[in-house]
């Protein structure tokens, strides 16, 4: 291991990079080893872990998922009932979605509690809001993908809510569905949003989130 690292370090000069990422001090008030209540400062890290878990299980679920009405249901049924570890992988992805919502919410509560959104961290707070919306977008689009009764009708209701927006509601809802009813086009676009658009958004804003945390440091109580 260390020889491989040395080989790479000699050629790419990785050490300063790693130092920048990992070699810094965690202030006492945010360090659970010094202050047990500082565990609330771990919520953000847990969010990152869950999102990585979701990406990993999600990529594997894509192996057996075909986004068309017949195949989507049959594929999820195949995953659930015929494949080794299928129920477990799907179960982790689904429970992981709930866990992500809970942890993102708790992380946000921690930031509110410690007033960490204040000057100079306003921008990072807004990036955090975008990330919250992204996670909710994942939940909403992912709910349709199994194409069972619950998926279909919950999405129908969800998209119908958009219709009530004045002036542009009907058009927006049709654009979301790809037509006047939830159907094949809806499934494909929800799938593409779920596995391409939102992950891209997630990666970009997560990078910004972490960059700002490292630039600005962890907030101190004032």
């Amino acid at each position: 291991m260390s020889r491989i690292y040395k080989f790479l370090d000699d050629r790419l000069n990785l050490s300063p990079l790693l130092k920048e990422i990992a070699d810094h001090q965690v202030p006492d008030h945010a360090n659970p080893l010094k202050t047990p209540t500082a565990l609330i400062y771990c919520f953000g890290g847990i969010c990152l872990f869950i999102l990585l878990l979701q990406i990993l299980t999600g990529v594997f679920l894509m192996l057996y998922y075909v986004p068309s009405p017949d195949n989507a249901y049959a594929g999820v049924n195949y995953i659930q009932n015929e494949l080794a570890f299928g129920g477990l992988v799907r179960g982790i992805h689904r429970v992981g979605a709930s866990a992500a919502v809970v942890m993102v919410f708790l992380h946000m509560m921690r930031v509110v509690l410690t007033g960490s959104y204040k000057n100079p961290r306003e921008l990072n707070w807004i990036v955090g809001i975008v990330l919250l919306l992204t996670v909710m977008g994942f939940c909403f689009t992912g709910y349709l993908l199994p194409w069972d009764q619950k998926a279909y009708w919950a999405t129908t209701v969800g998209v119908n809510m958009v219709e009530s927006i004045p002036l542009v509601g009907n058009f927006l809802a049709a654009a979301l569905r790809g037509g006047s009813e939830v159907g094949m086009l809806t499934l494909v676009r929800f799938y593409v949003v779920h596995v391409m658009f939102l992950p891209a958004l997630l990666v970009i804003f997560l990078a910004a989130h972490f960059f700002m945390v490292r630039r600005q440091g962890i907030s101190r109580p004032l």
Binding site: L56, T57, F60, L63, L83, F85, G86, L88, V89
Partner: peptide, 15 residues
């Protein structure tokens, strides 16, 4: 904990 289920999930059809 993750590797065993995921690898098993990947190779399951071959078995």
């Amino acid at each position: 904990g993750l590797g065993i289920p995921l690898v098993g999930f990947f190779i399951a059809p071959a078995l």
